[in-house]
C-alpha cells in the first residue's frame, strides 16, 4: 500500500514538473513579454521597461528563469506580484481557505443532493416522480454551472427581491451573512456533480436492488427501508467517490467563475484579476497551484478509494 502511494506521488511529481515546464514554454512562445504588454497599456518609457524586466529577471533566458523559479518554490517563494509587489505566496494563502471551503461544500452538497435524488428515483422507478427527477438531472448536466448561478440569481432577484450580500465575511465572523453569500455559489458548483451522482446512484441502486444478494436479504425478512438504506446505499457511496474524482477538474475550474461572479475572495478570483492585470507571476503561480491541487486531490481520492473498495484492496496486481 505504501509502495502504491509512493508510486502515485512519484508520477504526480513528474507531471507537475512537466506542467511547470509547459507553462514557462508557453509564456516564452509569445512575442513580447509580460512587461512590455503591461507597460504598453500604461505608456512607460523604454528605460523603465528594461529596469522592470531586470527586476523581475525576465532578461534571462527561459531555462534560467525556470530554474530560479523552481529554486524559489522549494524555498517557499513563488515570486512577487507585478501589480501589488506582494509576495505571491502571501496573496495565495490568504485566499486558499475560501476556495477550499467553497469546493468542499460544493462537493458535499452536490453529493448529498445527488444521492437523495438518485435513491428516490430508484425507489419510485417508473413513476412520474422518477421521470421528473431524471429530466431535471439531464437538464442540470447540460446547463453550465455559471448559467445556473445566473438564473438562480435572476429568479431570486425577481421573485423575492433578494440578492446575496456583496461584502465577504468569513463563517466565523458573520455566519448568517456568509451562509447567504455562499449558498448560491455552492449550489451552482455542485449541480453538475449532483446530476451525475443522481444518475449513477439511480442506476447502480437499481442494479443492486435487483441483485440476488438483495433478494436474499429481503427474503430473510429485513425491512425494506433498511434494505434500501443500508445495503444499496453502500454501493452508491462508492459511486459518489468515483464521480468526485472525475468531476474534480470541473469543480476546480468552476471556482474561478463563480468566485468572480459572487465576489468571493478565493484563488479563483485571484487568478482572474491577475489575468486582467496581466500579472504574470500570480497567473503562473496560480496555474501551477491548480494543477498541483488537482494532482494531490486526485491521489488522495484514489487512496481513499483503494481503502474503501474491498474489491480493489484485496490484491489485484496494481501497476
Amino acid at each position: 500500500m505504501i509502495a502504491y502511494a509512493l508510486r502515485r506521488l512519484g508520477y504526480g511529481a513528474v507531471v507537475l514538473v512537466l506542467v511547470t515546464v509547459i507553462v514557462f514554454v508557453i509564456m516564452r512562445l509569445v512575442p513580447g513579454d509580460a512587461v512590455s504588454l503591461q507597460l504598453q497599456e500604461v505608456g512607460a518609457s523604454k528605460e523603465e521597461a528594461d529596469a522592470l524586466r531586470a527586476e523581475f529577471g525576465l532578461d534571462a533566458p527561459v531555462w534560467v528563469q525556470l530554474w530560479n523559479w523552481l529554486g524559489g518554490v522549494v524555498q517557499g517563494d513563488l515570486g512577487t506580484s507585478f501589480y501589488s509587489r506582494e509576495p505571491v505566496v502571501d496573496l495565495f494563502l490568504a485566499r486558499v481557505p475560501v476556495t477550499i471551503q467553497l469546493g468542499l461544500l460544493a462537493i458535499l452538497v452536490g453529493s448529498l443532493l445527488g444521492l437523495t435524488i438518485g435513491v428516490v428515483a430508484a425507489v419510485t422507478r417508473g413513476s412520474a416522480v422518477d421521470g421528473t427527477l431524471r429530466l431535471i438531472a439531464v437538464a442540470f448536466l447540460s446547463v453550465p454551472n455559471f448559467v445556473v448561478a445566473l438564473l438562480t440569481l435572476t429568479a431570486l432577484a425577481i421573485w423575492f427581491a433578494w440578492s446575496p450580500p456583496l461584502v465577504y465575511a468569513g463563517p466565523t465572523e458573520d455566519f448568517a451573512s456568509w451562509a447567504q453569500q455562499v449558498a448560491i455559489p455552492v449550489l451552482a458548483l455542485g449541480t453538475g456533480g449532483m446530476a451525475a451522482v443522481a444518475r449513477l446512484t439511480r442506476s447502480s441502486m437499481l442494479e443492486s436492488l435487483g441483485s440476488d444478494y438483495i433478494r436474499t436479504v429481503r427474503a430473510k425478512g429485513v425491512r425494506e427501508k433498511t434494505v434500501v438504506l443500508k445495503h444499496a446505499l453502500r454501493n452508491s457511496t462508492i459511486a459518489v467517490l468515483t464521480l468526485l474524482g472525475l468531476e474534480l477538474a470541473t469543480i476546480l475550474g468552476g471556482t474561478v467563475i463563480i468566485e468572480q461572479m459572487f465576489g468571493l475572495p478565493g484563488t479563483g478570483q485571484l487568478i482572474y484579476q491577475a489575468v486582467l492585470d496581466r500579472d504574470y507571476p500570480v497567473v503562473v503561480a496560480c496555474t501551477i497551484f491548480y494543477a498541483a491541487l488537482f494532482v494531490i486531490m486526485i491521489i488522495v481520492i484514489d487512496l481513499l478509494y483503494a481503502l474503501v473498495d474491498p474489491r480493489i484492496r484485496h490484491g489485484r496486481a496494481l501497476s
Binding site: 507537475l16 512537466l18 509547459i22 477538474a249 470541473t250 467563475i257 504574470y280 497567473v283 496555474t287 488537482f294
Partner: peptide
C-alpha cells in the same frame, strides 16, 4: 503522452485563463 498528461493536469478554465493572459 506525458506532455498530454501534463496539459490535462491543469483544470480547463485555469488553462484557458492562462493562455488568455498570454495571448489577449
Amino acid at each position: 503522452q506525458r506532455v498530454m498528461d501534463a496539459v490535462q493536469a491543469i483544470p480547463g478554465i485555469v488553462l484557458l485563463l492562462f493562455i488568455a493572459v498570454v495571448l489577449g
